[in-house]
Design a protein around this nucleic acid. Sequence first.
DNA 1: TTGTATGCGTTATCAG
DNA 2: CTGATAACGCATACAA
Lengths: 362, 362
Amino acid sequence: MAKKPTIATVAAHAGVAVSTVSRYLNGRYVSRPVRQRLSEVIAALGYSRSWTARNLSLGRKGCIGVVVDSSQDPWFVQLLSGIEEELAAHDTGLMLSSLELRGVYDPALVFSWIRDRRVDGLILAKSQRRERPLLRAAVDVQLPTVVVAPDEITTDVQVVRCNNIAGGEAVAAHLAALGHRRIAFAGLPEHSIDSRHRLRGLRSGLQARGIQLEARDVYTCASFTSEAGGRFAERFFERPLDVTALVLATDALAFGVMRVALQRGVRMPEDLSIVGFDGLPQGALFHPALTSVSQPMRDMGRVACSRLFDTLGGRMELTEFPMELVERESTAPAAAAHARKEMHLVVPTDRGAAAGPSADGE
Amino acid sequence: MAKKPTIATVAAHAGVAVSTVSRYLNGRYVSRPVRQRLSEVIAALGYSRSWTARNLSLGRKGCIGVVVDSSQDPWFVQLLSGIEEELAAHDTGLMLSSLELRGVYDPALVFSWIRDRRVDGLILAKSQRRERPLLRAAVDVQLPTVVVAPDEITTDVQVVRCNNIAGGEAVAAHLAALGHRRIAFAGLPEHSIDSRHRLRGLRSGLQARGIQLEARDVYTCASFTSEAGGRFAERFFERPLDVTALVLATDALAFGVMRVALQRGVRMPEDLSIVGFDGLPQGALFHPALTSVSQPMRDMGRVACSRLFDTLGGRMELTEFPMELVERESTAPAAAAHARKEMHLVVPTDRGAAAGPSADGE
DNA sequence: TTGTATGCGTTATCAG
DNA sequence: CTGATAACGCATACAA
């Protein structure tokens, strides 16, 4: 019992050949009695197979690569938990690479993974245009790859993302129902497809309700960080507020905006309703808690991961998840805003909410 | 160029034996000319070695296990980035296990890792008493293990943690300097050694400055979540405020408290200064931004990981990191609090701060 | 310094 | 259905 038992020890103890044991372990043809005997011996010996040896024989690496701009990203953290769950089921390891781990963009590590076939598959979270070479390299060596919430449309790898247009429409419905008529949107820069889709959904959703999203009310933030959201807000709040609701393309942006709003004394949701996208759990910690359209990040992670395993030779698919509006505290009836400003707490909040649906019918 | 070149192909092309190539790859004795030749051949062939084969031969698994209550924990996320960094340097994979991944505590996966020697090492983040069996199992099979910020003292595994006592003292110095005389502390339940040390440091630090931390001002939260912080705050704010500063054992707790404070209309830092521990980056997003004593999570992760590699046979060590007070917006001179309450913005904030040092001398 | 031979633990191929 | 045996790709005593 000194050294770990191998498949050979088991074979010896059971009086069969190693290949039989191997077959047993992999659920192949084994006669009833032999199967019985093996299960006993294995239990008695406390045998467990070596994954390294198995991987070598199978030509696998036993782990997948997960790459993202920063593993600190709260959105990614959610995704990771889904990946973790699925990976555990497959007893597979993972290699993490934050493209901006040391402050500057450096995809070298991931390139080496691809070149050296270091991983069995690749998950690119929030891949952007700059990841294009990475994607190319992966496709070239036939490395199974799935992109999650990509910023670019891709046809030669698996895609997992959300229906952001519907998400935008959900916000439109929500705000319209609350009686908002003048709404602003602040999106992401560059080619963020998510941001564009969210805006598109919002715009068309409003339009369907007879509300126009003015071009001058559509802003662009410098990046996707909370800091960028804050900088946008500084600008935004300089001028008198002429909208009753502000929709941010992501929660991260919203966090930055809300902080500045609080500093400026802008009351939310009384003076301004705020809506974000992603549904990050930390949004619930703020005051007011952020109303947001959530992505099922965990499910997305799980699916992204399983796609890597079960469709190794399959066609490239697009999996789209629905988004869900989670109504917290940062949105309120537009009517209440004015009422409160003038009457100071005379109007019960419930009344304003009840007035919502009628406005929706217009 | 159809199939991946192996060490044998390289040997053939270079006209040497495989063992020579192996030695070259591992930096052993190789004559100048041969080395030259090999480097050329390898470059020409685009050879890269198989880590699975190498691991099998070396009897390694090529990955370590990282276990934590929840991989969503912001503190852990920081730690993880350090681990990621170090792991990349060693070209090693990782297996993640959230003990509470599916809501209920389930260490089964980790037990199986240990039993099957599935990993080369184990990092337990914030291990508690309930992880004791896990630790035992790991020690029993001689699996290199390091615990980070453990809640229990352990002598038979590597320990990486912070000097929480000094951290508590730093808070004492800070608050005393700001003129606070009546201070409250809310800590973690059970046997959290970190929480106890933070309290101890705070208490002794205050004492050294002639300030007594009253027993009735020391509270205990139900758990370490923001929700628990919120529930504590509900209780805390029920009675009239008789302290000018509240110290929370962790930032997470503080987040929950601040939200309730905002709801209750408690002004921070005017009515109440708030201090947390951990220095989570998200603390900067709040309004006011949370003053906190930070841990160098990333460094801790890096060191925890490297300990796993370089002291495989070495003695069990304790690595202690310093904590650093990061002063943001949630703390202010105690004097200003009263002044503002009564005089309404007459006292410039700077004056109060200037008064601090003298108070410190008492 | 370099080459030879053997082991690492499984899986897969092909006879039996 | 089962049993030898050859890969898998690399590392390392040991001999030269």
